[in-house]
Design a protein around this nucleic acid. Structure first.
Lengths: 208, 208
DNA sequence: CGATTTAATGACTCTATGGTCATTAATAGC
DNA sequence: GCTATTAATGACCATAGAGTCATTAAATCG
């Protein structure tokens, strides 16, 4: 309403702009990729003029970088917390872990950002590096901690070092990144997906 | 040599051009993404002038599409053949299956193409659709056949329908697509990777 | 209620590159 | 060897969109 015919255009809202611009950028990046997104459109969606974007971010790339920092790092920390404080079986921990990832990657923005990093990352070696250090490193640490914990509790079939943590999260990560290229039949409900994913990782396919 | 100071520039080689151009495009797309690749550079790498590219492909997008068709479809067929003709345990079949995928995605061009589809696919709804129909559909059929076969042999712990085939190949697919964003420590040798992947999918993590 | 500060604007510039096409020359046919 | 055909060329055009900046006006202050 305020936007439609509001008497006051040209509001001065220094504090609120950055995150509004990031939100607008994120939604357009996810629709059109990085190269395919026009700063003009980001501005329009944020309800401001193009020049205003440059008041807060020195370049398109800087805007993207701010989005990555804001949305991915906190997610990794959330997972670290979960593992550090959890008491219970590994099966239950893994389920909770997957739920957290699902929330951030499938329902939040982390999946979108990773998709863009993957597809257009060649353009931003700097960003890839940042992501590797800030996000990936932490995520893998957390998963290794989870495996060590399981090993210490005598729950593992094989030594913890023989399990590549990346394999465990691969299904969730892949779908978050690539759901568009899979046949459209849904991946089912959140609960269903997580249950199947857990079961496969914990017990495998084969009868014994 | 021939190129360096060769007496004959401007050779007429109608037959050889298309695949040479596709090769050049593929290598540049993988380095710079789709949007980041200049047709001028593709031409240079193929040893021809920019206009010549347009003699064989009507647009940049058409060139990319040709690459997808040529490199992905045949791969899917290779996997179908394998499953249809295999005799032996599911464990062994899965290993062979993974080897085939590894060859095409990690060592061949299929991974690169999928990475670009994912990252910049919003620009080519048509291409995503093509890929879904031509490649994904076949791949999933093949995997379902493999699961049904295992079920019929009494090797499965759970009904075949309860296993999402995409989860089984997710680790390989994810690494093929996203290896750049993971920490640089290698994923190990091909054999190692496949062995671990198989073992995890077949037997899971937990002691029983 | 002026005067001052600075957030916001959007018309403009400048570059990069996808795509065109008149010209050139390599081959084929005679 | 001459002519016709057409593959190959690269200078050129047109456009899009990132980034700039002189101007405008909202807030602040006295």
């Amino acid at each position: 309403m305020d936007v439609e015919q509001g008497p006051r255009r040209r509001q001065r809202r220094k504090e609120a702009r950055p995150s509004e611009i990031i939100d607008a950028g994120l939604s357009l990046f996810s629709e059109h990729g990085f190269a395919g997104t026009r700063l003009e459109d980001v501005a329009k969606r944020a309800g401001i003029a193009k020049g205003t974007v440059y008041l807060y971010f020195p370049s398109k790339e800087a805007l993207f970088e701010a989005a990555v920092k804001e949305r991915i790092v906190s997610n990794m920390d959330a997972m670290g917390q979960l593992v550090a404080s959890f008491e219970g079986t590994t099966a239950e921990l893994l389920r909770r872990f997957f739920e957290t990832i699902y929330t951030h990657m499938m329902e939040g923005d982390a999946g979108i950002l990773m998709r863009i990093l993957i597809g257009e990352g060649a353009r931003f070696p700097h960003l890839i590096e940042l992501h590797r250090k800030i996000a990936m490193q932490r995520g893998l640490e957390t998963m290794k901690a989870m495996l060590k914990r399981a090993e210490a509790r005598g729950e593992l079939r094989i030594p913890a070092e023989d399990i590549d943590p990346r394999m465990i999260v691969a299904p969730l990560a892949l779908f978050a990144i690539a759901k568009d290229i899979f046949p459209r039949d849904s991946i089912g409900t959140r609960e269903d997906f997580i249950r199947r994913h857990c079961d496969l990782m914990l017990n495998g396919m084969l009868a014994r």
